[in-house]
């Protein structure tokens, strides 16, 4: 049987000479290893730690600088949300591009030749880390809201509902996956991070200009501009049309390029 080694030829430390067969590597193991790899370097650790640190800093800034009448949970959620939209996609980008920029892919993809499984595990880990981060940040903001209102001698105002938080989380996860997609597509840390900022910020500004000058674009914008289609997620509720616009733009700007990138990863050489 070709699946086994020739008896007596195994240079095993344990002296095993019988034919050996091995179980396939389960997906859960790939996921747990990929999760570990996101934390086990100094840069990776501090990137993760920066989520907590920035959440605390943003909360502190609201406590110190926001006018009393703005000291509601919404202020904390917005302040914490801004650094999140930057860090989470960067975490997703680096989880993918590290295999190429640090050339660890040489080892990773010889241990797990199914590259799709590795990329899938990374996607799962990135989304998991993203969701946990948002929950953590929301908790930090909640503590800030209680402490801030106590210091100011005001009643604590909870003006963000759970469903609103869920929509914001969805927006953050989409942003994170855009970072992930660019990492898969470009396989270079610098290029993917720059591309993310173009995607998220430069493009948003340009479409804003275009919408101001071209009526046809202003009308169709929800179906074309993916940043614009996400805005309602931060406003707490979406109409059926807005959901459809979100689905269409996310498909075109995220799912399609991700599929292209995956295909390239599966076929490319790892050097």
């Amino acid at each position: 049987m070709s699946a086994t080694t020739v008896p007596g030829t195994t240079p095993a430390d344990n002296g095993a000479t019988e034919a050996r067969t091995f179980d396939p590597i389960p997906f859960s193991r790939v996921v747990s290893v990929e999760l570990r790899k996101m934390f086990d370097t100094r840069s990776g650790f501090w990137l993760m730690a920066s989520i907590g640190i920035l959440a605390v800093l943003a909360t502190g800034a609201v406590v110190l600088f926001a006018p009393d009448d703005k000291l509601t949970y919404e202020a904390y959620a917005s302040a914490i949300g801004i650094p999140m939209t930057v860090i989470l996609p960067v975490i997703a980008v680096l989880s993918v591009t590290g295999e190429w920029s640090q050339r660890t892919g040489l080892t990773t993809f010889t241990f797990v030749p199914g590259r799709g499984r590795v990329i899938g595990a990374k996607a799962l880990c990135s989304v998991g880390v993203g969701v946990v981060s948002i929950v953590l940040a929301a908790a930090v903001g909640a503590v800030g809201n209680v402490v801030g209102s106590a210091i100011a001698g005001l009643d604590t105002v909870w003006d963000v509902s759970v469903s609103e938080l869920a929509l914001i989380t969805l927006a953050q996860v989409i942003g994170l996956m855009v970072g992930f997609m660019l990492g898969v597509l470009l396989r270079s840390s610098a290029a993917a991070i720059v591309a993310y900022f173009v995607y998220a910020f430069v493009l948003a500004g340009l479409t804003e200009l275009l919408a101001a000058s071209q009526d046809w674009f202003a009308d169709a914008r929800g179906w074309i501009d993916y940043n614009y289609a996400q805005v309602p997620l931060f406003d707490g509720a979406l109409t059926a049309t807005q959901w459809a616009q979100l689905a269409v733009t996310t498909f075109v700007w995220l799912v399609v390029p991700l599929a292209v990138g995956l295909r390239m990863v599966l076929r490319s050489e790892v050097k």
Binding site: S2, T4, T5, D23, T110, P113
Partner: peptide, 11 residues
């Protein structure tokens, strides 16, 4: 061992 590397369950 008679199999392509990518077909090994745990290469």
């Amino acid at each position: 061992g008679g199999r392509r590397f990518v077909d090994l369950p745990n290469p």
